[in-house]
Computed example of a mutant assay.
Amino acid sequence: MILPIYTYGQPVLRKEAQDITPEYPELSALVDNMFETLTASDGIGLAAPQIGLDIRLVVIDLDV
């Protein structure tokens, strides 16, 4: 699922992100959705706050 990307000015982008554990609910689905969103936006990296979540999670695709 392609997720909405938050842009400059959104409050979540200014929040301090929280640590998560491997037991975070639906983590694998979230990572899959973030990679799908990243691919659709032609980016190389996407952080969770950019999709509205105040957690410490980032996906990077260096296969360009």
Score class of each variant (00 low, 15 high):
residue 3 L to T: 14
residue 28 S to G: 03
residue 26 E to D: 09
residue 62 L to D: 13
residue 61 D to C: 05
residue 38 L to P: 02
residue 42 D to E: 11
residue 26 E to M: 01
residue 29 A to S: 04
residue 58 V to T: 13
residue 28 S to E: 08
residue 9 G to L: 07
residue 14 R to L: 11
residue 1 M to P: 14
residue 17 A to H: 06
residue 28 S to M: 08
residue 23 E to R: 01
residue 27 L to H: 11
residue 7 T to V: 12
residue 30 L to C: 03
residue 51 I to T: 10
residue 9 G to Q: 11
residue 58 V to L: 12
residue 28 S to A: 12
residue 61 D to R: 00
residue 9 G to R: 10
residue 10 Q to I: 08
residue 10 Q to Y: 15
residue 40 A to W: 14
residue 46 L to R: 06
residue 8 Y to A: 13
residue 37 T to L: 05
residue 46 L to C: 05
residue 14 R to N: 08
residue 61 D to S: 03
residue 35 F to A: 01
residue 52 G to R: 14
residue 54 D to Y: 10
residue 34 M to H: 01
residue 42 D to N: 10
residue 27 L to A: 09
residue 20 I to K: 04
residue 28 S to I: 01
residue 50 Q to T: 06
residue 12 V to M: 02
residue 47 A to I: 08
residue 27 L to K: 02
residue 33 N to G: 03
residue 56 R to L: 03
residue 43 G to M: 07
residue 27 L to N: 06
residue 15 K to M: 09
residue 20 I to V: 06
residue 37 T to E: 09
residue 29 A to H: 08
residue 12 V to L: 02
residue 38 L to D: 13
residue 23 E to F: 11
residue 57 L to R: 02
residue 2 I to T: 15
residue 10 Q to M: 05
residue 47 A to Q: 06
residue 64 V to N: 12
residue 62 L to T: 12
residue 46 L to G: 10
residue 60 I to H: 13
residue 54 D to E: 08
residue 17 A to T: 11
residue 14 R to K: 07
residue 24 Y to S: 04
residue 61 D to G: 07
residue 3 L to V: 14
residue 21 T to V: 06
residue 52 G to Y: 15
residue 35 F to H: 04
residue 35 F to G: 01
residue 39 T to W: 10
residue 31 V to D: 03
residue 47 A to F: 13
residue 29 A to M: 00
residue 49 P to Y: 07
residue 20 I to G: 08
residue 17 A to V: 04
residue 53 L to Y: 12
residue 56 R to I: 00
residue 1 M to R: 07
residue 22 P to G: 13
residue 40 A to K: 04
residue 32 D to V: 00
residue 13 L to K: 04
residue 7 T to F: 14
residue 15 K to A: 10
residue 20 I to D: 08
residue 60 I to A: 11
residue 6 Y to S: 13
residue 14 R to C: 09
residue 51 I to P: 11
residue 51 I to R: 03
residue 56 R to M: 00
residue 36 E to G: 02
residue 32 D to Q: 04
residue 48 A to Y: 05
residue 53 L to C: 05
residue 48 A to L: 09
residue 60 I to F: 14
residue 18 Q to R: 05
residue 58 V to E: 12
residue 33 N to M: 01
residue 26 E to I: 00
residue 38 L to F: 15
residue 29 A to G: 06
residue 7 T to I: 08
residue 36 E to Y: 06
residue 13 L to S: 07
residue 14 R to E: 14
residue 47 A to M: 10
residue 49 P to T: 05
residue 5 I to H: 13
